[in-house]
Amino acid sequence: MTDEYTYFAPTGGLPDQNTRARERAVFTNSYAVIPQGVMSDIVVSYLPGWTGTRAWVLARPLTGFAETFAQLIVEVSPGGGATDPEPDPMAECVIFVLAGHVELSLGGRDHALEPGSYVFVAPGDAYSVKNSGDTPATFVWVRKRYEPAPGLDLPESFVTADREKAPVEMPDTQGSWSTSRFVDPEDLRYDFHVNIVTFLPGGTIPFAETHVMEHGLYVLQGRGVYLLNQDWVEVSEGDFLWLRAFCPQACYAAGRRPFRYLLYKDVNRHPKLDLA
């Protein structure tokens, strides 16, 4: 990782009373855009079992919206946290730290997390989190109920960081489009991936991807223009996008800094043949 990589963390507050009400927020039956400007104090939630903590819920399983995952931005005050964060025994999660310092206990080991730290917690593994610093700690928390498959063991928990994963360049892009993969795509134990996609200025997805995977996309840095279904939408750091399965999508980087986002997708399982 280079020093130019940064991670945007919302800080809440309320807009000035003279601010116009119109924002870039969009909600359709194929995609949604939740811009960072609407992540204010009045839309936070407080979570049972957590102290000194508030969260912006960006996605949750809901008819006509996200179907496979929940995604939150969690802000923990100094000394706050949770000794048993996960209420669902079949849930797995990824934690990606945006700001501050988090003390994580997982599998009998303690880990000091900082911005760019990445954690995968397998279903059933106990863990705890605590803000060990003197400023708020903020992280993305992506949760999914694990889908077992015959012949496959449970995935393994691990702790790593953005800087520890060399981005893999997409073919014939001269490095302008790359992906930092935290799980081997061929390891079928893992039924979802949360990767970091990076576009350097001028980088682009030059075709409309249309696929079964659902996406949750949080912009870590920079800005870009995204094709969502038939609409071109400007997005920038701190914005969240939800993309329904089969929503056509493409993008290009704008501005002078890398355009980077954290990307959820569901993978490696047979399509269900019922809607239950």
Rank of each mutant, 00 (worst) to 15 (best):
T2L: 11
E4S: 13
Y5I: 13
P10Y: 04
G13A: 04
N18C: 01
R20F: 08
R20W: 08
R22D: 14
A25H: 11
T28H: 02
V33S: 05
I34V: 15
I34P: 00
P35K: 02
Q36G: 15
V38N: 03
V44R: 09
P48D: 12
W50D: 04
L58V: 06
T63H: 04
T63C: 00
E67D: 09
E67Y: 02
A70Y: 02
Q71E: 15
I73P: 03
E86I: 14
E86F: 00
P89L: 09
M90C: 10
A91S: 15
H101R: 10
V102W: 02
L104P: 04
L106H: 08
E114M: 11
G116I: 13
S117D: 09
V119T: 10
F120P: 00
A122W: 06
P123W: 04
A126Q: 12
Y127S: 07
V129E: 08
K130A: 13
N131D: 11
N131Y: 09
S132I: 10
G133Y: 03
T138L: 04
T138R: 14
V142G: 08
R143K: 14
K144H: 07
Y146I: 06
Y146R: 07
E156F: 08
V159N: 08
A161P: 09
A166V: 12
P167L: 03
E169S: 14
G175N: 10
T179G: 00
S180K: 15
D187C: 08
R189L: 04
R189D: 05
R189V: 04
Y190T: 06
F192C: 00
F192E: 01
H193E: 12
V194F: 14
N195H: 14
I196A: 01
I205R: 05
P206M: 08
F207T: 07
A208H: 14
T210G: 01
V212F: 05
M213T: 11
G216R: 02
G216P: 11
Y218W: 10
V219H: 03
L220P: 01
G222W: 02
Y226M: 04
Q230F: 02
W232K: 07
V233P: 09
V233Y: 10
E237A: 15
L241N: 01
A245I: 01
A245L: 01
F246C: 02
C247M: 09
P248Q: 09
P248R: 07
A250Q: 07
A253I: 09
A254C: 12
Y261Q: 05
Y261K: 05
L263P: 00
Y264S: 02
K265R: 14
K265T: 04
D266N: 15
D266F: 03
N268W: 02
K272V: 05
L275M: 07
L275N: 07
